[in-house]
Design a protein around this nucleic acid. Structure first.
Lengths: 232, 232
DNA sequence: GAACACAAAATTGTATACAATACAAGTTAT
DNA sequence: ATAACTTGTATTGTATACAATTTTGTGTTC
């Protein structure tokens, strides 16, 4: 359960290890949405045959981190605005309830683990490594789902967070603060206190904050605002 | 969107078509949980190489319809009691809300489609084809998720229903009636009336009914009750 | 110079061959 | 007789070869 962030891979690399390495790279915004993922290229990088790479790409396509189109190959997914809205609406449906369960079940060990996450996250921000900070911020949420002991929901949340990373890469408003510094901390406090209502409420408002830091206006609204911007 | 139930496959079969055919067979309880799915065997059946079959099996493993263990191969999944509980708890979390959305968005065409589903389902029951009835019953739920226009949630629900089919195969109480004949009909009525509250409530109670028709006691309770049964 | 046609290159999809692992049966030793 | 070992078979994992499709580049025509 002690997932490392290191990108080194076992020799020889397996489909799963490649999928994880790619997933991490996407999480950390080291590869942008839309980037082509050629099979030969990846096979060379990881020192395996295309067979293994294809397995990894198929895995990632199932969690919608990559798009595979027949005879066109794989590329990093690029969620539409509609998909982005759906992802956050779904998170707002699943995660508050999950935080509630986590509040009833959190042990001292769990709390310590979450606090360590927060420390790491702050350290990454200090070190001017926003990619890593974002990745850790996602891990924080999956960790809560794990604590809630709902493996099924945790699996769903994991894919939603993966997609959220793409959504943030595409639609994050520059002007909005990186925030949430306190949000996660307050949430841990509620979990430590086994305060279910508080945990659920905090998670809900945290997600709403995140959601509202995205620019999910559709193209029409966007061009209108562009027109506004240029008319000055 | 007019998914056929026919099991004939395109020539040549593709990974997706094989995955769908296998999924259908599992849904209809034509293959039991735990059944070994040998690659060579399937390759011969569908007239393709193992490469294609492996793709299909990997797809099915992602929605947890099959278990793949390294160097051990694939077999039809066999959800534990804990997983079964989780699946139904998750459905109870997602589907009522989805039914609510569906109630606001359902068009006359949608209602007609759902009513056709119900007719087909009854026909299957009349024809003593419980497998097909069960499959159609699952389709009814995915159809509602589709009507709700929440593709993300619909995808989750689809995998939950697939797993429910396995759970029903494993844990359905013989003595419990096949029921739900009226449940689906009442739900369609609520959707047709755009009665959100009613749709949500009906879906919730329908799922609770389903859940309670399963025998999800753990082994200890089970053996105890066996003792009771024999002590008479 | 732009648009189309066609050929060449690159990339993906599938099949097959080979390597590695697991399983089962039979053998030997204690 | 049982346990451990060995060997043979079956099955899965991976690499490579070939087929099919898309993309790219070039030349021709208007």
């Amino acid at each position: 359960m002690n997932r490392t962030i290191d990108t080194t891979l076992p020799q020889p690399a397996t489909s799963d290890s490649i999928a994880q390495a790619l997933s991490l790279a996407i999480h950390k915004h080291r590869v942008a949405p839309g980037t082509k993922l050629g099979e030969d290229e990846l096979a060379e990088i990881y020192g395996v045959s295309r067979t293994v790479v294809r397995g990894a790409l198929q895995t990632l396509s199932h969690i919608k981190l990559v798009d595979i189109r027949r005879n066109k190959g794989a590329s990093v997914a690029s969620p539409s605005i509609i998909e982005a809205r759906e992802v956050f609406e779904t998170r707002e449906l699943l995660e508050p309830r999950t935080a509630r369960s986590a509040a009833t079940r959190a042990t001292a060990t769990d709390i310590a683990s979450l606090e360590r996450h927060i420390v790491d996250e702050h350290a990454a921000l200090e070190a001017a490594d926003p990619g890593r900070a974002l990745y850790l911020s996602g891990l924080f949420h999956t960790e809560i789902a794990r604590i809630a002991q709902q493996a099924t929901i945790a699996g769903f949340i994991e894919t939603l967070i993966a997609r959220s990373s793409l959504i943030i890469a595409l639609y994050w408003r520059r002007e909005s603060a990186l925030c949430e510094k306190h949000a996660h901390h307050a949430l841990v406090q509620a979990l430590a206190d086994n305060d279910e209502d508080q945990a659920e409420a905090l998670m809900r408002s945290h997600l709403v904050d995140l959601h509202s830091a995205l620019d999910l206006r559709d193209r029409n609204e966007r061009t209108l605002s562009l027109k506004d911007a240029l008319s000055q």
